[in-house]
Simulated scan of single mutants.
Amino acid sequence: MDARKALVLFSGGQDSTACLAWALSRFSVVETLGFDYGQRHRIELDCRLRVRDEIRAAFPEWGARLGEDHVLDLSLLGQISDTALTSERAIEMQANGLPNTFVPGRNLLFLNFAAALAYRRGASVLVGGMCETDYSGYPDCRDNTLKALQVALSLGLDAPMTVETPLMFLTKAQTWALTQRLGGDALNTLIVEHTHTCYLGERGERHDWGHGCGQCPACALRRQGFEAWRQGGAAAELPL
């Protein structure tokens, strides 16, 4: 067990829940951090508390290591963003090849604020669900971006700050496989029932893979990953 304290960037979605489980299986103390930035799918802020409660109840050993939760108001990000995640508009591709769900600087800002909070809380590990395998092409999800930011944060704080991205090179099918390995059927059932991924904030219809509109890019990735994992094969095999 790693004696360091970790701070997980926790939105209440599938990926951040996988990261929370990953951190709880490794670190002695794990705290969580969410952001309210005027997101269109801010229902995730309610889901994240339910997920924490469900994890604590289903996994007492993890629950003993699950520390405080924090939420930061970053509404300024919504004020300077003109995206489909922060305003009521159709989700579509842009001329630069990125979907208009891309919020410029979001992960950079998140990690800077997370590092400041971690420093105050005595944590030296930041855990995020960024991934450059199955994703929408966001440049602030790339491994090189996060490695560069880790160096900048450690220098700026004059203290080691490790940025862990356990999903960076996993497909969505492999993410389902990871949570199955970490917590078995209980964890994956929890993810299906209680996490939120849908960009439109839809919680009505319950699909095999969870709640959501079923059409937005986030739902499509989650659905495709779930189906590939359930079918098995190379797509769902975890790297050694």
Results as ranks from 00 to 15, higher is better:
M1E: 13
M1K: 12
D2I: 01
D2N: 15
A3Y: 07
A6S: 07
L9Q: 06
L9H: 07
S11N: 07
G13C: 08
Q14E: 11
D15L: 10
D15F: 03
T17C: 11
A18K: 10
A18I: 08
A21N: 06
R26A: 10
V29F: 13
T32N: 04
Y37M: 01
D46N: 12
L49W: 10
L49P: 00
V51A: 04
D53Q: 14
R56H: 13
E61N: 09
E61C: 01
G63L: 01
R65W: 09
V71P: 03
G78A: 08
A84C: 03
A90G: 15
I91C: 09
I91F: 11
E92Y: 09
N96A: 04
N100V: 05
F102Y: 15
P104I: 00
G105W: 07
G105C: 02
R106G: 03
R106W: 01
N112W: 12
F113I: 04
R121C: 12
S124E: 11
L126P: 13
S136K: 04
Y138F: 08
P139N: 00
D143L: 14
N144W: 14
T145R: 05
L146P: 10
Q150M: 12
L153S: 00
M161F: 07
V163W: 00
V163M: 02
L167K: 13
K172I: 00
T179P: 02
L182V: 01
G184N: 06
G184W: 01
G184R: 03
D185R: 14
A186V: 10
L187Q: 05
H196N: 08
T197K: 11
Y199C: 09
L200W: 13
C213M: 12
G214H: 08
G214K: 13
G214R: 10
G214I: 08
Q215G: 03
A218Q: 08
A218L: 05
Q224E: 15
E227A: 14
Q231I: 12
G232P: 07
A235R: 12
A236M: 06
P239N: 06
